[in-house]
């Protein structure tokens, strides 16, 4: 795995390498080198399979992180390729030429995060939310609770209880407090 990443280093600028597990690595790349790097990973380094792609909203840094998880059948190892893109003009190169099924993920990301993938087929068709008019709902500055209360007629009288406290009050009054778990960093 390390050897493959070293070979990738000769091609593109790898900003960061994180080893989560012997067969799970995450690398961070620059956005404009992503398609070249993924093509090299797929065709030369044998990461044939795109398991999924997803986005994370870093609202504080004003960035989206896209993760492309690719899999190597010979090493039986996963490699996550992260790129950070700007949150305001969120747009990324489409990779549906490398992996055909990526169009579906890109369509979902377009709908849920508003990340555009120019050239990706059917990218602006509604994926699950027909007739959606607000901002993309998975962006963290979208207040789902307020939207739900505004739109979907909440039933009054809803109570929320902590399950443990509730069970202690209702059924098991003598249940001891759980022992404090000592964490390694304390």
């Amino acid at each position: 795995m390390k050897e493959k990443i070293d070979r990738l280093r000769k091609m593109v600028n790898v900003l960061q390498v994180v080893e989560k597990h012997p067969d799970l690595y995450f690398i961070t790349l620059e956005g404009n080198q992503l398609v070249m790097a993924l093509g090299y990973l797929k065709n030369t380094l044998n990461f044939k399979h795109l398991a999924f792609m997803q986005a994370v909203d870093y609202l504080e840094d004003n960035k989206f992180m896209l993760t492309y998880m690719v899999y190597n059948y010979e090493l039986k190892a996963n490699l996550g390729v992260n790129v950070f893109i700007d949150r305001e003009e969120s747009s990324m190169f489409s990779i549906h030429r490398l992996w055909e099924h990526a169009w579906q993920y890109q369509r979902e990301l377009y709908e849920m995060f508003g990340i555009d993938f120019p050239g990706s087929p059917r990218v602006d068709e509604p994926f699950i939310m027909e007739s959606w008019e607000e901002m993309p709902p998975m962006r963290r500055d979208f207040d789902t609770l307020a939207y739900s209360q505004k739109t979907y007629f909440p039933r009054p009288g809803r109570e929320t209880n902590d399950p443990k406290e509730q069970m202690k009050k209702a059924k098991y009054p003598n249940y001891p407090d759980s022992p404090k778990i000592r964490r390694d960093d304390e």
Partner: peptide, 19 residues
Amino acid sequence: TINGGMYYDSYNTINRIDY
């Protein structure tokens, strides 16, 4: 279907079917 259940704050799930 009664009050949204665990999806009461979801952007995509209706809360009361009887509306």
